[in-house]
């Protein structure tokens, strides 16, 4: 039997193609990309040796610093927003809507599967200032305030980006965290209620600690996505105004394909990979220590 299930030829036939495609199209390019960090130029202009120049540029480039700051700001705000709103929603589902939550859960989840480009264009029109006054500015005007040119400055553009990405994905985190909350045994909640815990106290002392593992994996998942944000910002603001909303991914894209500098582009991509690795490990570690202390 083990002779059959350990058949080398069968393993090769089953595993070989996937491993081959994966190695050729993902692993090899990754290593190749690391090699690019020591060159400058592009496939069209040809490459020349650059040594560690790209790395020293990365450390002193004001555009890279601005992009790093934007990436971190976006990642922190949107991760906290997604997970916090998602958690509130999941509490709403479990403790207030209970059985009736199915329809609302499905509805709030829907934007998750919508094409990012479509949602971004929708928000562009929704927050429009001129020539058509979009619903948001119309509402502001109806309330006696002035309309805002949302995409006219980096600060307000950031607000729209954050609102859009939280709107788009809160339903996802709500469902993820909902699954964690449903797993909390009813007896635990019941005995806490008998002991007199209710409302916020119940959430803080019982529900929150017990759903911490799901919460942490949500945060890790979310921060990994937000550090790599590209689609939504590219489609919504294109990184503008100027380069006021340009994250590292977009800077990498521009450097490589608009300015034809593959070497520096690859260096930025490498920096980004390192950043998400470090952040993930950091959250992982911080969380593990908490658990052992408790």
């Amino acid at each position: 039997m083990n002779r059959v299930l350990g058949d080398k030829r069968a393993i090769l036939v089953l595993l070989g193609p996937a491993l081959l495609v994966y190695s050729l199209v993902m692993l090899a390019p990754m290593l190749w990309s690391l090699g690019y960090t020591m060159f400058s130029g592009s496939v069209i202009t040809g490459f020349s040796w650059a040594g560690t120049k790209n790395f020293s540029t990365l450390l002193h480039d004001p555009a890279a610093r601005a992009a790093l700051v934007f990436t971190l700001k976006y990642a922190v705000v949107v991760t906290v927003g997604q997970v916090a709103v998602g958690y509130l929603l999941s509490l709403l589902y479990v403790f207030f809507l209970r059985r009736a939550s199915g329809l609302i859960r499905t509805l709030v989840f829907f934007p998750v599967v919508l094409p990012t480009v479509a949602v971004a264009l929708l928000f562009q029109k929704f927050f429009e200032f001129a020539p058509q006054t979009g619903p948001v500015n119309s509402l502001l005007e109806a309330l006696g305030m002035h309309g805002v040119d949302w995409f006219g400055s980096a600060g307000t553009a950031f607000v729209v980006i954050a609102v859009m990405d939280i709107w788009r994905s809160m339903g996802f985190y709500a469902v993820l965290l909902y699954a964690g909350l449903v797993d909390i045994p009813e007896e635990v909640l019941e005995s806490a209620r008998i002991d007199g815990a209710s409302g916020t106290r119940l959430v803080r002392s019982i529900v929150l600690p017990l759903s911490l593992p799901v919460l942490v994996s949500s945060i890790i998942f979310s921060i990994n996505g937000t550090l790599k944000v590209f689609d939504s910002i590219y489609a919504l603001t294109g990184g503008g105004p100027g380069s006021g909303s340009t994250p590292l991914t977009l800077l990498m894209y521009r450097t490589s394909f608009f300015y034809g500098d593959y070497g520096y582009g690859a260096t930025i991509a490498f920096g980004l990979t390192l950043l998400s690795l470090v952040v993930t490990l950091f959250i992982f570690r911080a969380n593990r220590r908490d658990v052992t202390e408790a």
């Binding site: 993902m26 990754m30 990309s33 991914t249 490589s256 998400s276």
Partner: peptide
């Protein structure tokens, strides 16, 4: 090894692939 692929940002593989396809 397969699992590691979930972590890789798309930007890491774009440039070499573009070169090859070109």
């Amino acid at each position: 090894v397969f699992l590691a692929g979930i972590m890789i940002p798309g930007q890491m593989i774009l440039l070499p692939l573009f070169t090859v396809y070109f």
